[in-house]
């Protein structure tokens, strides 16, 4: 009991020392043919960490990451609870230990929208202000 209290205080102290950056507003997007309308945050996290690799119809999921920028940082911090650098290292661990290939990276919102619009298996994230009818925004539960 005393140990768990000390551990809690320790983690709280470390958390207070963290200097998180405010997240940008983003929306998770899929192809308009994809029937999924909403996903739990934990499902999105598992998808972008390569733990969930199949859609419910059995087709593979194509994960699209943005290279950097505020939207990327906001998504990675809020959904994956990692810094962009930690996410990069996570995927390199998966790659170099023989578990997976790296997800595709795109430089900006428009290139993500272009790929998602053309690829029924794709999922990505963009600035919520850039959402239009070429792709479909997913509601996060």
């Amino acid at each position: 009991m005393i140990l768990s209290k000390h551990l809690s205080l320790f983690f709280l102290l470390l958390t207070l020392l963290s200097n998180r950056v405010e997240a940008a507003d983003f929306v998770v997007v899929v192809n308009k043919e994809n029937p999924i309308e909403s996903l739990y945050k934990s499902e999105v996290k598992n998808i972008f960490l390569g733990k969930k690799i199949f859609w419910s119809d059995g087709h593979g999921i194509d994960v699209l990451l943005q290279t950097d920028g505020d939207v990327h940082r906001g998504f990675v911090l809020e959904i994956l609870s990692k810094s962009p650098r930690q996410l990069s290292i996570y995927w390199l661990q998966e790659l170099f230990s023989g578990k997976a290939m790296l997800p595709k990276e795109y430089p900006d919102d428009q290139s993500v929208k272009n790929e998602v619009a053309a690829n029924p298996a794709a999922i990505g994230y963009i600035d919520i202000l850039q959402l239009d009818d070429t792709v479909r925004g997913i509601q996060l539960k």
Partner: peptide
């Protein structure tokens, strides 16, 4: 236990 700025 990892947070964006630290890892234990």
């Amino acid at each position: 236990y990892a947070q964006p700025d630290w890892k234990f």
